[in-house]
């Protein structure tokens, strides 16, 4: 007798969704690593050291990249919350486009 009611294998759609959840869990880890990278850089004065301007650009580019990835994941995962969340108020037509 199986221990739980959850199926062992999933259809393609649910499988994709599960992997999206994994990606959403991993994203902050990668984000943290990318944002920790500057502490390994050499000081601006030292040979091969990066300037504050470069550092600023780097941090903001990583930041924008994380936002973009989060946007993609959020769009993919929104239906997954919809499945389990309470249904919205029934009255009135939907104004939201998404």
């Amino acid at each position: 007798m199986p221990q739980s009611q959850r199926p062992l294998f999933l259809a393609r759609r649910s499988y994709r969704r599960r992997r999206m959840m994994d990606a959403a869990r991993l994203l902050p880890v990668f984000g943290a690593l990318a944002l920790m990278l500057p502490i390994l850089w050499r000081a601006p004065g030292a040979a091969g050291g990066r300037s504050t301007a470069t550092g600023t650009v780097y941090v903001f580019v990583v930041w924008a990249l994380l936002i973009g990835l989060a946007f993609v994941l959020a769009r993919r995962l929104r239906p997954a919350i919809g499945d389990e969340a309470d249904p919205p108020e029934p009255a009135g037509p939907t104004l939201r486009g998404d």
Partner: peptide, 8 residues
């Protein structure tokens, strides 16, 4: 930012 993108 890290906390928010780790919302899941």
């Amino acid at each position: 930012t890290l906390v928010l993108i780790g919302w899941w």
